[in-house]
Structures are given as structure tokens and as C-alpha cells.
């Protein structure tokens, strides 16, 4: 049992690393039955259908959360349905597949996998923690000595990234669910 857990951890970490590492060109995210035909390509420039998570300030946090939710809903609605299986070079059918909403402790995570020509071309976050109760924490930052800011995406080129490279189990769960819809 331990070995199974370790094995799945390692595989999970590798899959995520493959998907998110901006420099990795290809990796083995493959359905079992055709190990050599599908590769995942990570996209370094995520498209705009994922809602922004940057805040605007503490006073309008509720409004901000609602806006973010609205954006999230919109992006979900514009998701294209799975296209007929054309040009199936791999086992995944072309289309966009939305995974289940999975609990990541700090909120819910839901991903959308985009399959093009049988390959995963993008994985997008549709859901992330931004509800009202969490936004309220913003108002409770205790110590005024330290500066705080809304986080904001930076596009400057980097050599290496610090942060969590491993999967959250929730992310993997949602991705696995999305991919299971993409296989026949």
C-alpha cells in the first residue's frame, strides 16, 4: 500500500511538473494504452479565460469576489463542447473538458483541460478560493508595519521558479476527471 502511495505521488508530481514547467517541451502524460502517441505541451502563455485573482483593495473585497465569480461563470459558459474525434493522433479527443470541483483545503479547485489534435494544449483553473469569508481575512491583517498588496502577474522572463512544484491532490483529481472525459 505504501508503495502504491509513493508511486502515485511520484507520478503525480511528475505529471504536474511536466504540465506547468514553462520550459519543459514535452512529457509523458499519456493514456496507458498508447504510451508513445500523446504528449502534453505546457503553454507558457495562459489564455485570458481564466479569471484574474488579483484584488483591488480591502474595502471592495466582496464586490471583487463577486466579479471574479462572474468572470469564472462566463469562462465556463464559453467552454466549447467536445468536438467530434478528428485527427486523433492520441487517445484524447479534441475539445475542452472541465474537471470536477475538488476540495484543496483552502478552497475549491477546478480545472479545464484543452485537447487539440489529441494532445493536451492547456490546463486552466476555473475555480480558486475567492469567496466572501476569505476576502474578509484581508481586512484583518494585524500588523500595519508591513506593506501588503494584491498579487499581480509578472511576465518578466525567469531562470527558475520558487513555489510548490508538486501537485495538489485536488488539482490532480480535477485534471484526471477532465482527462477521463477526453478518452473514449
Amino acid at each position: 500500500m505504501k508503495k502504491v502511495t509513493v508511486a502515485s505521488l511520484i507520478i503525480g508530481a511528475f505529471l504536474i511538473f511536466s504540465l506547468v514547467h514553462s520550459r519543459s517541451n514535452s512529457a509523458a502524460l499519456t493514456p496507458r494504452s498508447s504510451p508513445d502517441s500523446v504528449t502534453a505541451t505546457s503553454t507558457s502563455a495562459p489564455n485570458s479565460s481564466v479569471p484574474s485573482v488579483t484584488g483591488r483593495g480591502s474595502s471592495d473585497s466582496d464586490e471583487e469576489a463577486n466579479q471574479a465569480k462572474a468572470t469564472a461563470t462566463t469562462s465556463t459558459n464559453t467552454t466549447t463542447s467536445p468536438a467530434p474525434a478528428t485527427a486523433a493522433s492520441g487517445r484524447y479527443k479534441d475539445g475542452s473538458y472541465t474537471g470536477s470541483q475538488a476540495d484543496a483545503q483552502w478552497g475549491f479547485v477546478q480545472v479545464k483541460a484543452v485537447i487539440s489534435q489529441g494532445k493536451i494544449t492547456d490546463v486552466q483553473f476555473l475555480d480558486y478560493p475567492s469567496d466572501r469569508s476569505r476576502s474578509r481575512y484581508i481586512n484583518n491583517i494585524a500588523d500595519p508595519e508591513l506593506t501588503n498588496e494584491a498579487i499581480q502577474a509578472q511576465s518578466a522572463q525567469v531562470d527558475v521558479i520558487t513555489g510548490a512544484t508538486d501537485s495538489s491532490e485536488a488539482f490532480m483529481q480535477s485534471l484526471a476527471d477532465a482527462l477521463s472525459q477526453a478518452t473514449s
Partner: peptide, 12 residues
């Protein structure tokens, strides 16, 4: 060296 801090909400 240029080091990025990953966005915990959007890993890419």
C-alpha cells in the same frame, strides 16, 4: 539569477 515566485492560484 532571475527567480519567479509562483502564483499559488495560477501555477503557470
Amino acid at each position: 539569477w532571475r527567480v519567479g515566485i509562483r502564483n499559488p492560484f495560477r501555477r503557470q
